[in-house]
Simulated assay, not measured.
Amino acid sequence: MIYFLHGSDGYQSNHRLKQLKSAFQPTDPSGCNQAVFDLTENDWPAVKAGILAMPFLASARQIIIKNGFGAKKKIQEDLADFLPQVPESTGLIIYENQEIDKRNVLWKRLEKLGRTGQAEVKEFPPVKGWDLIRLIESEIAAAGGQIEPAASQKLADYLLASGWRLKQELDKLLAFAAGRAITTNDIELLIKPDFETSIFDLTDQIAGGRSRRALELLERLIEQNANELYILTMIAFQFRHLLLVKSLTEKNGYLSPGNLAQRLAIHPFVAKKALAQSQRFSLLRLKKIYQKILQTDLGIKTGRWEPRLGLELLIARINS
């Protein structure tokens, strides 16, 4: 059997790899029938010989190939041509801890084998939104811990997506909680928000009329070397979402986050937050705020204001 595990969420893909390795180990008491090859380091003839080798004192072998898509083009082509010849006694796992160019010849061969049932092809994209909250809660439960619902949502807000960092932060929180339920205070104390989360928090403070807190967050972002024009772009992006959501709800009445997400081509999690924020504003006020954002952009780009001053003035003007 051939297994193809790939995707940018290395934490989940590695979890599946560990499952396959653990399931094989009881069938290989000698420990002689598992091998790992890196196609950026090992020669193709050696890898091929390892795949074709007969099991030693066992009924099967397990071969793991890493970085196949990072190998030279000729090696990738050789592997793609060879895949139909993998013996039944060899479980071949092709593991890629990254996104893949799906125009690649090796990808096309593996995808075809997956469609015909000759391979298990599993992609592991980052988990986001509500799915991330459920993943956090299931991982905490599997580790024998507990987490308050508000804390799991805050952690999802801070991390934005699954990945290796999720595992590291969960281990830290579980150790700190020491048997009690993880709280939002634990999250705020121990976890540094993702950069995009900090931007979203900034726009949330601006939208909520909390200018002092917004200015504190702006200073923190600049200290972290965030580009001022990028911050302005993200503020514009967020208020544009609020404007579109407000316009749609005034025209059509209440719309669910899922409906809004579909209409605006955004994630339901983002739509839910934008829906809640938009209720603080009239449509007219949102239009005026968006105009102020455009004026700030022009003022910075024409040299009227230094970028930081322009952002500080914008925060003050939005809430004046």
Rank of each mutant, 00 (worst) to 15 (best):
H241L: 15
L314W: 03
D157W: 10
P268C: 07
D186N: 09
T90L: 10
E41K: 15
L113S: 01
L113R: 05
D38R: 10
P87V: 05
K273C: 04
R263H: 07
E139R: 15
S198C: 06
S320W: 07
G117E: 05
G258C: 08
V86I: 08
P193K: 11
F200V: 07
Q62D: 07
G144L: 10
P84I: 08
D297S: 01
R103Q: 10
E188V: 05
L79N: 04
R308M: 09
K48V: 01
P257A: 08
I199H: 11
C32M: 15
L202Q: 07
W107E: 04
E41N: 10
A58R: 02
Y11D: 09
D201R: 14
N227M: 10
A274E: 06
S282I: 04
E188M: 06
K192F: 13
K72V: 05
L311K: 08
K246V: 02
L255V: 04
L190M: 10
K74Y: 04
S8K: 14
V245C: 00
Y290P: 00
E228I: 06
G253S: 06
L229W: 03
I235S: 07
A58G: 06
L39G: 02
N42C: 10
T203G: 05
F237V: 01
Q238I: 08
K102I: 04
D28P: 05
D78I: 01
Q277L: 14
S256H: 11
E312M: 05
L283H: 11
E41P: 01
N33E: 04
R134M: 08
D81Q: 13
A119W: 10
A161K: 15
L106V: 04
Q168E: 14
Y95Q: 05
L215V: 09
N185W: 03
D131T: 01
L155A: 01
T233I: 03
S152I: 01
